[in-house]
């Protein structure tokens, strides 16, 4: 038996909206410690890793580890039927072929349930090592979203360079070139409006803007985003989802032929 209840159902709605374009399908791996998902995009250049901890839910029970194969487009259709203020409960029997989603309105006067057909998905699990990065940048998630959106209108790839001067995003395309530099800025009173650059050594890497732009669909989930960079390694883009867990994106760099 698996059961997970979250009063703030809108978080689940936002999570699925953030992932559904990047990842068509994947396994929700549930265990006594929580729910995780690891999935690649269809071209296998980026990896999404979602972790929702058991204690982040208002109620959580999982008697047996299960991999529930989810089609995210279909899950999104069902979650669109939940109100933003609804409490959402996910339920599945052991070895079930459906996941039940129950929506309860805030004043308990409307209760609905939907069964999502589960899929059987073969997936390879990748080990993501904890590592020290050359540069770590925490910035407002809305700022990240704006930068990648603006640059996507100019070019296809972005060179991200972190130096002691700050972090520079550069692109070029048919219309011309663009450079946006962010500097370390801890003056805003609110921590979520600060930009914090932790630089161990300068690093410069090129990435496809299409994916970085796609990651920013997670903006409604968190006020801040963290970018981590090391030479020749994937960029790591992380959104903390309150006390519930996190969404992590890894994107392979563009390298010279």
């Amino acid at each position: 038996m698996f059961e997970a209840r979250i009063t703030q159902g809108s978080v689940l709605k936002k999570l699925v909206e953030a992932l559904k374009e990047l990842v068509t399908e994947g396994n929700f791996d549930v265990s006594s410690t929580g729910l995780t998902l690891q999935a690649m995009d269809s071209s296998h250049v980026c990896l999404v890793s979602l972790t929702l901890r058991d204690d982040g839910f208002d109620h959580y029970r999982c008697d047996r580890n299960m991999a529930m194969g989810i089609h995210f487009g279909n899950l999104s259709k069902i979650l669109k039927c939940a109100g933003n203020e609804d409490t959402i409960t996910l339920k599945a029997e052991d070895n079930a072929d459906t996941l039940t989603l129950m929506f309860e309105s805030a004043n308990q006067d409307r209760i609905s349930d939907f069964d999502l057909k589960l899929m059987s998905i073969e997936s390879e699990h990748l080990g993501i090592p904890d590592q020290d990065y050359s540069a770590e940048i925490k910035m407002p998630s809305a700022e990240y979203q704006r930068i990648v959106r603006d640059l996507t209108s100019i070019g296809d790839t972005v060179l991200i360079s972190a130096t002691k001067e700050g972090i520079k995003f550069s692109t070029s395309g048919d219309v011309g070139t663009a450079n946006i530099t962010l500097r370390h800025n801890t003056t805003p009173e609110k921590p979520e409006e600060q930009t914090i650059i932790d630089l161990k050594e300068p690093v410069a890497l090129t990435f496809a803007l299409r994916y970085l732009n796609n990651f920013s669909k997670a903006t409604p989930l968190a006020p801040q985003v963290k970018l981590s960079l090391t030479k020749d390694l994937p960029i790591f883009v992380e959104y903390q989802v309150g006390d519930l867990g996190n969404v992590r994106f890894f994107l392979a760099p563009k390298i010279d032929d």
Partner: peptide, 13 residues
């Protein structure tokens, strides 16, 4: 420029 599979950067577990 080219991009290699993200799987190449991580180990299978």
């Amino acid at each position: 420029m080219k991009q290699i599979s993200i799987g190449a950067y991580f180990t299978s577990s």
